[in-house]
Computed example of a mutant assay.
Amino acid sequence: MNNISSLHQPHNTSSDLLKPIRKWLNHINVCDRTKAHTIAKFIPAQCPFERDIVLFGRTVAHIPPLCKLNPFYDEFVSLRFRSLCYLADECGEDISSYI
């Protein structure tokens, strides 16, 4: 049984190395209108790398979204969501331009 648990240890170690950054990102408190606008502006709503390569009107290749390869993808999406919720709920702003 020790052999099985040791196989999973390298994955847990790399995950543990990123845990403080994940925790910091998850605990960013959005309580300022300017900060919320900045976060919503710089974190895109969709992955900017996804593309269709079209040649002579036909799609010849598709580049899949690579954002999920980012180890902090979920934390960034959550931070953007919290910022948009703050702007809509607390500030009463229209956030349709960010969506």
Rank of each mutant, 00 (worst) to 15 (best):
P64L: 01
L7Q: 11
V77C: 12
H11K: 11
L18G: 08
E75Y: 00
P65H: 01
S14K: 11
N29E: 15
E75Q: 14
L69Q: 10
F56P: 00
D32A: 07
T13W: 09
K35Y: 15
P71N: 00
T34Q: 14
I28P: 05
P20W: 06
G57H: 07
D32R: 03
W24Q: 13
R58Y: 12
R22Y: 04
D89N: 13
N2K: 09
K68G: 00
V30D: 01
V60R: 07
F72I: 06
I43Q: 02
N26F: 02
D94L: 05
A36K: 01
C31W: 05
L55H: 14
C31L: 09
H8G: 14
C47N: 07
S97R: 11
I43D: 02
C67M: 02
C47E: 02
P10T: 06
F49L: 14
S83M: 04
V60P: 02
H62C: 09
V60N: 07
P48D: 03
C47R: 00
T13R: 11
K35M: 15
C85L: 13
E93W: 01
S5I: 11
R82T: 09
E75S: 03
S6W: 07
P64D: 08
L7F: 13
K19D: 13
Q46V: 14
L87A: 02
K35E: 15
H8W: 11
K19M: 11
E50C: 10
I63A: 07
R80Y: 02
Y98M: 04
A61V: 01
T13A: 12
A45W: 08
I53L: 15
F72A: 00
M1H: 08
D32W: 01
A36C: 05
P65C: 13
H27G: 10
K41W: 09
P65S: 09
A40V: 05
F76R: 01
I99F: 08
Y86S: 03
P48E: 01
C91N: 04
L18W: 00
D32I: 05
D52G: 03
F56Q: 15
R82G: 03
K35T: 11
K41R: 15
V60D: 07
N29Y: 10
L17W: 08
L84N: 05
Q9F: 10
S14M: 12
S96Q: 08
K23I: 09
I95C: 07
R33C: 11
L66K: 00
R51T: 11
P65G: 08
P44D: 05
I4F: 12
A88C: 07
L66G: 05
K19G: 03
Y86D: 01
R33Y: 06
Q9I: 08
E50W: 02
E50T: 07
A40M: 05
I43V: 15
H11A: 14
R33G: 00
I63N: 04
S78Y: 09
G57Y: 05
P64Y: 00
N29P: 00
F72Q: 02
A88V: 00
V30F: 06
R82M: 06
N2M: 08
C31K: 14
D89M: 10
V60K: 09
D89A: 13
L79D: 04
E75N: 11
S15W: 06
D94E: 05
R51V: 05
